[in-house]
Design a protein around this nucleic acid. Structure first.
Length: 172
DNA sequence: CTAAATACTATTG
DNA sequence: CAATAGTATTTAG
């Protein structure tokens, strides 16, 4: 997945106003939602357990099944609350191979006590394949939740060279 | 506006 | 360990 990523943020309200209609399709292993002008709004693996839930999120929009091909350069348009946008941007700054706790992430966005809300924002991100949300773990070394399952999360971390065993010192 | 919910954390027993 | 209260923010009603 060596795509080039352009991120663009918008509020949910504006998003609905600007794009009452969305396109979606399954392209290869990707389940993909875009705007009519080919900006990616959501991306998930088709193996995603609740891929219909993803569409649920856009229930206020008109959803049209269209043939979509995944371009090399991804222009993403993410609709979210200010906090979510902040969190998602911060996630992209996490260097490969390192893991952050929710606490660190919260501190990074200057809201050290909002960990719980931050966790919410992390989980709400619609393009988990692009945003390294798997690099976030709980403070005590436990692996928190993951949309695609904890196993997948661990696998991704391992591939990035993270010493997973050291993380779960108190786990299992 | 209010109440419920949260992919968390720190503090108890 | 487990239960619980506490925290900030989003969502739903």
């Amino acid at each position: 997945m060596n795509h080039q990523i352009h991120l663009q943020f918008t509020s949910k309200k504006d998003f609905l106003k600007s794009y009452p209609t969305l396109h979606y399709d399954v392209s290869g292993e990707w389940f993909i939602v875009t705007t009519p002008d080919a900006k990616v709004c959501a991306l998930a693996l088709v193996s995603f357990p609740h891929s219909e839930n993803l569409l649920n999120r856009y229930q206020k929009h008109k959803l049209v099944k269209t043939k979509i091909e995944l371009p090399f350069s991804l222009h993403c348009l993410l609709a979210g609350t200010p906090l979510q946008q902040q969190v998602w941007k911060a996630l992209l700054e996490i260097p490969k191979g390192s893991v952050w706790s929710y606490q660190q992430l919260a501190t990074h966005v200057k809201k050290p006590k909002a960990v719980r809300a931050i966790a919410n924002a992390v989980g709400a991100n619609p393009i988990s394949p692009l945003i390294p949300c798997h690099r976030i773990i709980r403070n005590n070394g436990l692996i928190g939740g993951y949309y695609w399952g904890v196993e997948e999360k661990l696998k991704l971390l391992k591939e990035e060279g993270v010493n997973v065993a050291a993380l779960k010192k108190t786990f299992i």
